[in-house]
Structure formats: C-alpha cells, structure tokens
Design a protein around this nucleic acid. Structure first.
Lengths: 132, 132
DNA sequence: CAGCATCCCACAAGATACTG
DNA sequence: CAGTATCTTGTGGGATGCTG
C-alpha cells in the first residue's frame, strides 16, 4: 500500500525500476524528532552517550537510546564499548552517515534561508481566515 | 525548550545569530506523511483535488485536505477556485515550494542511491542480535 | 555511566458520514 | 467535485524507576 505510493514517488523522479518502497522506507528512520540532530551532534567527531545527552538535554533517555539504536541499525553510526569501570560507550558517524548529512545540509540551509518567508506566509494566511 | 535544541543545531551549522526555532519550526510542516509526496505530485504542473487523490489513492480525504491546507498556509502551494458547476479547484507550487523541492531532491536522491546499503546494514544488525 | 522496562499521553492519521 | 465534521486508532515520544 505504501509501496505504491513510493512507486508513484519514483515515477515522478524518473526511476521506474523499483520493486518495493525505496524512498519512504529509508527516510522514515531519519524523520524522527532527534535523529538528524544526533547525526549533527556527531559531525565534529565521536561522542559518548553522556555527551550526547548533555548536547540535547531535553531528550529523554529512552529516546536517546532508541534513536541511537535505530541509527546504528541502519548504518549511520557505530557504537564502540570501552570495558572500563564505569563503562564508556562512544558513538561515531559512518561514511554512510556522513554522506547523508551532506545531502541533508541542503534542506537545513533551505529552512534557515526561507524561515522568514514561511512565517510571513503563515501570518498572511491566518489574517485572511480572520478577515473572512 | 525546543528552542535550545535548534540553537545547538544552528551552533553546529555555524550560525549563532538566531532568536527562536528556525530549522525544526520550518521543517515540521514538511515532515508529515504526505506533504513531500504532494509537493512532488505538483512538480509537473498544477493539479486538481481529485487528480491528487487519484495520484495517492491511499491518502484519506481528511489528510489530503489537511495536508494541502498546511502546505498552503506555509506558502508552498496556491489554491485557485474556478466557479464552475461542479466546482473545480486547482493546486500549484509556488516559487517557495519549487525551491524547497530542489533542496529536498538531494535527500531523495541520497535515499535511492543508498537504499541497498541501508537494507544491508539492517540485515547485519538484526543477524548480530540473533547471534548473541 | 549507559542503559532497559513499564506505564502514560498527545497527536498524526484513518474511517465514515454528511454538504454546498 | 471538493470539501467539513465527528469518532476512533496507532504510534512517537515523555516520565519514572531499576540494573550491570
């Protein structure tokens, strides 16, 4: 069902050679509330669990763990355990994660450049509604 | 609260001159299940409500209406009503919508190019879990 | 320190029925 | 045809407490 959506999505993009859900499938992992932020947090280099938590204090521990696991599962980051006492765990971007971030930057830059336009549009729209 | 997240996000991107939530705020509108698909559907030219519905048969009418309204509110698309009987309504990309799609294409292309890698990573990860 | 388990809630999204 | 209104459900995410 979602499959056919992606087929149409692909049709629009010029690639007809698909057999299952290419785009939505991949992007779903990265569309969560914290995923891209965590990838960005790792873009200067490896970070420990507690460093990431400090970086995003408003993330719940549950979601930090979950997001990191999901990103790891899809190959965006690695996890290295140092058998110290207490234990240390270090997360780092893979090449896949780095190349994704490159693509993602385009969207982030767009969002920043067009933020005012978007807000203006919202204001206009809401005013119209009020006006009648 | 989300504000500081965006500040950190921006810090990572090198822009410190912010005062509220620039990135997440803008992207939230476009992170829905249907938004980008509908924008893509409009990329060949204007489409009527029923055409969009046919393009994505698995969208509910409620979500089609809602997504189109949201996109319109943020200035990505326009809505033109032709006073015929029965009525016709035509949706079209704005320049803002078009330029967003340009940025978005980068991510879509990445997703398609890296789909196999992502799947392979998932398989590896799940196998490890099983193995112990 | 770096998690996992459990409970809970808000909100995105679907289903269905009705209207100008 | 192009919606609106209402009810319901699924799930992303938060809060809290416990462990190696």
């Amino acid at each position: 069902m979602d499959k056919c959506v992606d087929e149409r999505m692909d049709a629009l993009l010029g690639a007809k050679d698909l057999e299952s859900c290419p785009v939505r499938d991949v992007l779903s992992r990265v569309s969560g509330k914290w995923s891209t932020l965590l990838l960005l947090a790792l873009s200067d280099g490896p970070r420990r669990f507690s460093e990431l938590k400090r970086f995003a204090p408003d993330i719940s521990q549950r979601m930090l763990t979950k997001s990191l696991t999901d990103l790891r599962r899809d190959g965006y980051i690695t996890r290295k355990v140092y058998p110290t006492q207490p234990p240390q765990v270090e997360y780092a971007l893979t090449e896949e994660g780095t190349s994704f971030l490159d693509a993602w930057q385009g969207v982030v830059v767009w969002a920043k450049e067009n933020r005012d336009r978007v807000h203006a549009a919202r204001k206009r729209f809401d005013a119209e509604i009020d006006g009648g």
